[in-house]
Nucleic acid binder design. Structure first.
Lengths: 211, 211
DNA sequence: CCTGTAGCCGAACGCCTGTAGCGCTAAGAC
DNA sequence: GTCTTAGCGCTACAGGCGTTCGGCTACAGG
């Protein structure tokens, strides 16, 4: 038997324990660290509980105080990641008045966010965790996009039609464009913004303001 | 020290050795097994050399006769997977005369193939192996699609324009639609064929024959 | 029949993983 | 000052992994 797993241990007493009633702080810190590592790894299955513990200098077993198992941690991280993305999209939407500008801003957020966090984009959209856990919360992004498309139609800024179908086509196209850039980052891709504007014009039928 | 790793061993002498000069047969068998497992796992990093060896009943070390390391094996599997997909697309293309029908058939192959092998689709398009190895061969699919779009334009069946840009938009849209279906297989997706026809009509501008 | 070697296997090393059980320590109530 | 308990750490188990080194064995050439 080997002596022990020295690598796991925190580097000593460098880390101070949370005050009573503040134990939930560690939970947030664990999720933060998990998100940092997930963005680097770009793979939910590759994230190890021990690496997360190492990242913030706690014992691996201390993670179990806040999460039942590894999958629960990954799921919680995904959920927060998703919530952040939805909030960013909502804020971009709220910054405009014109329904077309709102939709465009909402879509563009997917581009900027995926460029800033390609690893997390992969985890959120290509995660295999969905085989074992409930990740239906991921549909929220699509629902809000559909609502944005509907508002364009209602305002007469887009040809009337089935908003769900149009939105699905738009999301598929945008996701595909983003996915290609994320998965083949070394290719000389043309500007995503222009491609998104073409999708808005051709798939939704809105008139995009000249950029 | 533990006794040994009994699980690795072949189940006895059930497997007969290849004749002299036929050693390359095992190589093909290893790639076949790797592809089978990759389709199940849907993740190139999750494939273990030992699992491949187990699958065909050989010792793990025998893989090293034909592949330098695990990554080389995964890369060889990806390459064959890619070649199969390209060949399927070429055959579908060759089965038609009309340039539009050729392009449509080529694109539809991506749909049917991804439906038959969702795991391999993920490995081929979302693999993280590209960070370490050269996987530029994956661009071949796009190049052939661009040529198919160009032929539609040359025949006057699609509005003249930059074939590379139009093809990129089409591929992005189709890839996105497929990716969503592969990554969220439990959702009630509408028929992919109709969605592809909309992409052909709106993004390429061709008149799709009534289905 | 003898022998070289192609084709493959066994055992082991050293690493990493998730997780269980128990132990410690300091904060805060009394 | 005492005692409870929240908040965490330590050790260990039982596996998985890639990879190396040194064999064994049966077939082809002589």
């Amino acid at each position: 038997m080997r002596i022990m797993d020295v690598r796991d241990a925190a580097p000593g007493g460098t880390r101070s324990r949370n005050r009573r009633g503040q134990g939930e702080r560690l939970r947030e810190e664990i999720i933060d660290a998990a998100l940092r590592l997930l963005d680097e790894l770009a793979d939910d299955e590759a994230l190890s509980l021990r690496a997360v513990a190492r990242e913030i200098g706690i014992a691996a077993t201390s993670v179990y105080i806040h999460f039942a198992d590894r999958d629960s941690l990954v799921l919680a991280a995904m959920r927060r990641c998703h919530d952040d993305l939805v909030r960013a999209a909502d804020e971009a939407d709220a910054a405009h008045d014109d329904p077309v500008a709102k939709l465009r801003a909402r879509v563009l957020v997917m581009g900027t966010w995926s460029h800033a966090h390609p690893g997390l984009y992969k985890v959120l959209h290509e995660s295999t965790l969905s085989r074992r856990a409930d990740t239906t919360f991921r549909l929220e992004i699509g629902e809000r996009a559909t609502a944005a498309v509907q508002r364009c139609m209602d305002a007469g800024l887009a040809p009337a039609g089935d908003a769900a179908t149009v939105s699905l086509d738009l999301r598929a196209a945008v996701h595909g464009a983003v996915s290609m850039r994320v998965n083949l980052p070394d290719q000389p891709w043309p500007p995503l913004e222009h491609q998104i504007d073409r999708f808005l014009a051709k798939l939704v039928g809105v008139t995009v303001p000249a950029s």
